[in-house]
Computed example of a mutant assay.
Amino acid sequence: MREVETIVVGGGPAGSTCARRLVQHGRDVVVLDKAQFPRLKLCAGWITDKVLRDLDIAPGDYPHPMLRLDIRAHVPGLPFGLRWFPTPGANWSIRRIEFDAWLLARAGAEVVAHEVRRIRRDGDRFIVDDAFACRWLIGAGGTMCPVRRALFPEGRNKSRQIVTLEKEFPYPAREDVCRLTFFRRGLVGYAWVVPKGDGVVNIGIGGKAKYFRTSGTNIHDHFRAFLDDLVREGRLDAATVADLKETGHPYYLFSRDGAVRDGRCLLIGDSAGLATMDLGEGIGPAVESGLMAADEILGRGTYHKGEVTLFSLSGLTQRLMRRANRRHLPTPTAA
């Protein structure tokens, strides 16, 4: 059986960030992931200046395309797109198939292709599939993380569940503008068009699963209607839309309930349900939680869920949400 101080289950941004900090301080760490990197990961791929600072990356350090975003927010009833988008600093788009693989390689940790199936405790150790043993166990395997399922059996807060549909594909005719459409056709969520480098675009729609369960609407119908709108606006051609096959996945917005630690076992990133409460942005909270978990192992701090960034739009979102709640209107919670 392989003995190691820390096992990180999941090699995405949360897991690779945690592993990198541990490696930088000379700690023994192994990353387990069932996927071979680079692997396809559909995501709008929005990152902020803060994410780059947390990762200690300058835009020029990144070897793949990183496009600075010109964001326009669209709200029904307004005849124009808001050119001012209230996020501090610059915003960028990346492709997760490139970004995640680069982060994991940069971490410098040993990566083992292994699908985790069984986890048990043995005194102060965790045993993984009777093949690995560790003192610290980090769950970074996303929404369906095997660490969360094995050691955190309490149910998820279903009111915080988000579902998305999206497609990422080459489309050289795309515009270099990121468009976000809120409250489209009553959707409690938003739709997006995110341009990326090398003529790639990511188009998607997301919202609260509860909305689709209670409204009688279907997310696939919302997605196809959004594509039809883009064709009418001249942003996509009909032939491209006809061939698109969207892919969906669920995850969870930040919720104050739900444990993220059990002794020396910590959940980070989407396994902990840390996406921002307003825009559902997950990369920033994943990186933050990965750093916090590593610092706890290093004895440099304590990982507290409440210290992870809650809102992408900071104080403005909180004011809008309070105002919407007072008026009993749906709030802009999204995917």
Rank of each mutant, 00 (worst) to 15 (best):
R121P: 05
R121E: 14
R121S: 08
D122Q: 09
G123V: 04
D124K: 05
R125S: 03
V128G: 01
D130F: 04
F132G: 03
F132S: 00
R135H: 08
L137Q: 05
I138P: 00
G139R: 03
G142V: 09
T143F: 15
C145Y: 08
P146S: 01
V147A: 08
R149F: 10
A150E: 10
L151S: 05
L151A: 10
F152W: 07
E154S: 14
E154C: 11
G155W: 12
N157H: 14
R160S: 13
R160H: 12
T164F: 13
L165G: 05
E166W: 06
E166T: 01
K167A: 15
K167D: 15
Y171A: 08
Y171W: 12
Y171N: 12
P172F: 05
A173I: 07
R174G: 09
R174T: 08
C178I: 07
C178F: 11
T181W: 14
F182C: 09
F182W: 10
F183A: 09
R185Y: 13
R185H: 15
R185S: 15
R185G: 13
L187F: 04
V188Y: 06
A191M: 09
V193P: 13
V194E: 13
D198F: 07
D198C: 14
G199W: 05
G199M: 08
G206H: 01
A209G: 11
K210S: 12
Y211C: 05
T214Q: 13
T214G: 01
I219G: 00
I219M: 02
H222W: 10
F223T: 01
R224P: 00
R224V: 04
A225W: 07
F226L: 10
L227R: 02
D228R: 03
V231L: 07
V231R: 01
R232G: 01
L236K: 01
D237I: 12
A238W: 04
A238P: 00
A239R: 13
A242G: 11
L244P: 03
L244G: 04
E246C: 12
G248H: 00
Y251S: 04
Y252F: 15
L253R: 04
F254D: 02
S255M: 06
R256D: 15
R256P: 13
G258K: 03
G258A: 07
G258W: 00
V260C: 10
R261F: 07
C265N: 01
C265D: 00
L266E: 00
L266F: 11
L267P: 10
